[in-house]
Structures are given as C-alpha cells and as structure tokens.
Design a binder for these strands. Structure first.
Lengths: 351, 351
DNA sequence: TTGAAAGCGCTAACAC
DNA sequence: GTGTTAGCGCTTTCAA
C-alpha cells in the first residue's frame, strides 16, 4: 500500500489538510512544518494519487489520441510530436486505434469520455461522415482537435440562420497538411524541369488524400496551360503488384509520359521499379516524384524526389492547440502545415 | 455536466444504490426497475465515471507502455500489438517515451504510478542498469513486463541465500526476440549457400543488440569450423555515410568477403549501395542478408534477404502476460519470440 | 426488493 | 498557522 496523506498526517500528528497544504508549498503553512512534511513524505515514499485529485477536478491529466491505423511512420511521428508537447505540459497521452472503422472510433471516443480525459486529438476514419460522437464531447467540456485528415464543412462554424435559438453548431480546431498546394508545387516543379506529359499514379479514388492531390495536379496543369489528359491519370490499389501494372499501362501509352507523380511511398517505389524494368532511364526518360513518409527514398538509386508531410510538427501543433483549449480558449483554429519538397536525382533534369 | 447516478436516482425517485445496482444488472433488483433505470440512463446520456470507480478499486483500466523511442516501425508495431490485446480486455493504453534517457524513464514510471495504471510494459533504455524504479512498483501492486530489450540477470529470480528473511528480489516477466539464434541462422544460411568469407557489418559495439547478433554469428562460424576473421567484423554508426565507408573497407580487403550480414535496415541498404557502386554483383560476388523491420526490402533490386522480428506478436504476448499478472498471476514468465528469416534474391545463390 | 451510509484520497471553504 | 468538514461519483456492506 502506498502511503497516503492520512498516513503522513498520523505519523506527524498533524491534520490531513495541513499535510496537503504543506505539500503544495502553501505559504499559509509555517515553513518549518512544510519542510518537515516534505521530508517525511519523501521518507515514506509518498506519491500523490492523481485519481483522487481527478475525481474532484473532473479530469485526468491525460490527452486522448485516436488514429485510424497504427503501424505507419506517419502516425507514429504525429504521435511523437503530440507526446512531446503533452509531456511538457504535464499531460500523459493515451492512444487508441480506430482501424478505419467508424464504430470503433465511436467506441474510442466513448472510452475516453468515461476516462474523463482532458482533451482529444483525432484523425478520423475514412468512413467518418457524422460527428455526433465528437459533438457530444463538447457538452462534457472535452475539447477536440482534428489532425491530418480534413473535417467536412458541416463541422465548421456555421452562421446561425435563426438568430432566435442560438443553435451552437459544434466546431473544432484542426491541423492539416496542404495537400492541394503540395501536388500543385510538385507538378510545377516537373513543368519547370521541361516535362510536358506528366502523369499521376493515384491510390483508390475514394480517398480524400487522392482527391486533393489530384486536384492540385490538375490545377497546376491548368495554370500552365497544359491539357489534362484522361489517360495520364491512373488509379491503383496500394500494393506493389497493382502499382507496377498501373505504371506499365502508363509506359505503354502511344505518347509515353515523361514524368510520373506517385501519391504515396508504395506507389513511388513501384513506379521506380516498373520504369527500370522497362529499360527506361530516370529522370531522362521518365522523371519521378512522389509523396512519402519514409527515409529510404534516399537509399536507392537514383535517389527519389519527394514531398513530405511535417508529421511531427502536425502532432506538436495539434497538441498545442488542444492545450490552449483545455486552458479555456474557445475559438476554433485551423492550422495548415506546409509540406516539404525535396528534389533529388529522380526529377532533376535541368539543374 | 454529464448525468450522474444521483441525477438518475433523483429523476426516478430511487436511491443511488438502487440505480448503481440496476446498471450492473444486479438480479437483486426487480427486473422492471432495472429496465426502467437502464432506459432512463440511456435517455439522460449517462456515462459511467471511471475515475470515481478507480478511486475505490485503486487502479485505472489503463496499461502503461514505456518505449525508448517513438518513431520506428518496430515500436509502433509493438505498440499496436499491445493495444490490440489491451482493448480486447477493456484496457486503454497510455504510452510514454523515455528517449533513451534513464532519467526520463524513471520519471515515466513515476507518472504512471501516480496515475495508478493497472500495469506497465516497458522496453528499457540503453542506459538502464538499475531497476529500483521498477522494483518500487512491485510494492504498489503494479505488475511489470519487459519487452524487446533484455533485462539483466540481476532482476531475474535469485535463490534466497538467507532463508531467514525471505528477501523478495523483484523479478519481472519478459518477452524478447531470439537475437543470437537469428544471427546464427542467418550465418548458417550463407554457409549453406556456399559462402566461406562471411563478414558482419555491425552498429555501435555498446548496443546489446549488436553484441548478441555478433555472438550468434561467431557461434555459427565455430559450429561450422570456419575461422572468425577479425577484419571481417566491422563497426559503423547507424547512418548511410558511415555504413557505406565501412562496407567499402570490407570490399577493399585483399580477400574480399563473399557475403555480408548487416545488423539493421540502414546498414543493409548502405551495404547494398556500396556493393553496387563497386561494380560487384549481388549475390554472385557478394551475398547480402540483414536484420530489418521495414517492407521496402522487397521494393529494391535485388530484393533483400532479411531476418525480421515479430514485433506485433511481441507486443501482443507482452500484453497478455501483463493482463495475467493484473489478474493475480504471480510467477514471472520469460517468452522468447522467434524471428522470421526471409530469403530473397540478395542471398539466393544455389537454389 | 430497496435504502442509508461509509469510505476510496484529496482539496478547499470555513472555522478558530 | 492549523484543524474540521463537506464533497467529488461510485460501490458495497448492513439494515430494513
């Protein structure tokens, strides 16, 4: 049994209240007493019971994090950023995995609610379209910050149409990457390198990430008065075999693309493999650039140009916003974290 | 304010006790009452307060995890395994990062103690040599399971030398990988492929992981009556540049090795790059095999042979052991999780 | 079948 | 400067 305030009080012949105050270094208590108490507490290996504390305050010094899947560098980096900021502020981090299932996400939120966490950072599942489960948190004073994945308009502040009943539409802070701009920039870069037949190798069309990046690609083509060619936009499942097939279909076109943008790591590596297998040179015959979260892009030949999310920073930022909210800040804030473009051998033609 | 038992009781004109029992489906309460209470609870959005519960029971339904660093596939996979098992058993997972610092680890343990977690799973830092901070947990009834990194003999059960005072030396369960055997097997594999000049590309000598894997390598050579050549054992920092240098020093030897074992991902990729840059063929001139936690080994040419830890399984196993301990199981158990060897093109000479 | 009341460890408002 | 006491939400004896 760990020592409690009661034990210390008994041993010292003081009241529990005095001991409590002394340990908080409350100047109302005589210095001598304070020191005696602290000393004794140390000797008795006293360790404050946060649970008792939390029962009064209503919240645990814990931040809950919900991610849609666990084993990726991206999310572990986001988590690391969150943890770093949280621990600075004296919060622990609890994390749960929704496994891209809306039901699980709902359940996770409920568990965290029951635990009375101080706040929640969430990256919603692909299925998530309603936000009632998060809205319910607002009523229990648990702030929420969304990270990495966009939340739809519906959850953003809506000007009240009926001024009478001030319907508070729940709205939350968010931290996201600028996917559209990132794809735009990558496309621009290829154009600057002299490429004119730029293809894009996408993941499944239903992913928002794919939609956004494709959007940036199309915009960049428009902005540079290049045609968007239907046959240069291909979709693939996110595995090597499908992606290699998809790349081959691009390379077999009558007018072969002179550049490929791959929307994630797997697609990027697959594209590289396929281009090489076709006996084509990178970047002279086909330039390559891709979105990536891994460092191995530097370990291959040629080194691969990439666009990277600042995942760690996204985690940090989300956590900072959340802590502000925990401290009473009310207004939702939307932060957009820029991506980083690293040009390497696979797309460096001109310079 | 979320509804409490009191609120429900008041609304229904029942006592708090009755409501509490009804929600636990206690058959002592009339079925009709039970149903009424449950119904009302749902309507009032009642959500049980775990903190209040925990104040009595003394423990939160939470498992604490301490890892030495965050952003690696290995640990995020271990964590995922832990979380999977924990959530099955109704526990949440709190994780903290010691950043390979003993002081932080100690602090993490303390925080978890204050939070009254139900149990702790830890992968100790490289600095950790004393276990007093974990031993202190034993006194507060918080079980500990070590994962991935070995704990020294000192913390294993020691037969009491003085039967009089039954000094309970704290000892903990553990789940580790069989590094020695893994390296032994990899070496054997190369020998079977006809290699006779097998070199090993190590990380910093102070790492236990390096010691163990080197040990397995040496044993395998002995067992096969091959000489251990001093010049075939090289150490490198874990970054591309150093590792490429180290590999080059191997390739420049008068008697060039015909195989290289790389002790982690980075070293493996570096070795591949260096061998290629020297115009040598893999595996015909130099065979390659390495310890790895990433999947990209399949995405390069040639595909790389690897030895992989079953990190997810390690996490699951650790969590299962911990839950057994939480449920009262006393005896420490030591589980060794076998590695998986995947032979790919980089070391397939004969078959 | 239900209620009253104690108590988990702590803090804070109110004495003195 | 220190003590007394109420109460956070819940479970669980003990009574009725």
């Amino acid at each position: 049994m760990p020592a409690s305030l009661k034990d210390i009080a008994a041993k010292l012949g003081l009241s529990i209240a005095t001991v409590s105050r002394a340990l908080q270094d409350n100047p109302a208590i005589k210095l001598q007493t304070r020191q005696l108490v602290m000393q004794t507490a140390r000797e008795m290996h006293y360790s404050k019971n946060f649970i008792a504390n939390s029962l009064r305050s209503g919240q645990l010094p814990v931040i809950g994090v919900i991610v849609p899947h666990g084993v990726t560098l991206f999310y572990s980096s986001v988590l690391d950023g969150i943890e770093q900021e949280a621990s600075k502020a004296g919060y622990a981090v609890i994390n749960m995995n929704s496994h891209e299932s809306f039901e699980r996400e709902r359940h996770n939120v409920e568990s965290m609610q029951q635990l009375h966490v101080a706040g929640i950072i969430a990256s919603v599942t692909q299925e998530t379209e309603t936000f009632d489960h998060f809205a319910a948190l607002a009523k229990t004073q648990i702030p929420v910050v969304f990270v990495a994945r966009d939340i739809p308009e519906a959850s953003l502040p809506i000007p009240s149409t009926s001024p009478k009943k001030n319907h508070t539409v729940p709205h939350f802070s968010s931290v996201t990457a600028d996917s559209v701009e990132a794809a735009h920039r990558a496309t621009r870069h290829l154009i600057e390198q002299g490429c004119r037949r730029i293809a894009i190798l996408c993941g499944p069309a239903r992913l928002k990430m794919v939609q956004e990046r494709k959007h940036g690609y199309i915009e960049a083509l428009h902005d540079n008065r290049l045609l968007v060619r239907r046959e240069y936009v291909v979709y693939s499942d996110i595995d090597m075999a499908s992606a290699i097939d998809a790349t081959n279909s691009l390379l077999d076109l009558p007018e072969r693309p002179d550049a490929i943008i791959a929307l994630n790591d797997t697609l990027l590596f697959a594209a590289m493999k396929a281009v090489k297998q076709n006996g084509l040179r990178i970047p002279q015959d086909v330039a390559l650039i891709g979105f990536s979260d891994v460092e191995y892009v530097e370990d291959v030949t040629p080194t691969l140009s990439t666009i990277e999310d600042q995942s760690h920073l996204m985690g940090q930022t989300a956590c900072q916003l959340l802590i502000d909210h925990i401290h009473g800040q009310q207004l939702p804030i939307h932060r957009i974290i820029p991506t980083i473009q690293k040009i390497r051998e696979s797309s460096r033609i001109k310079f």
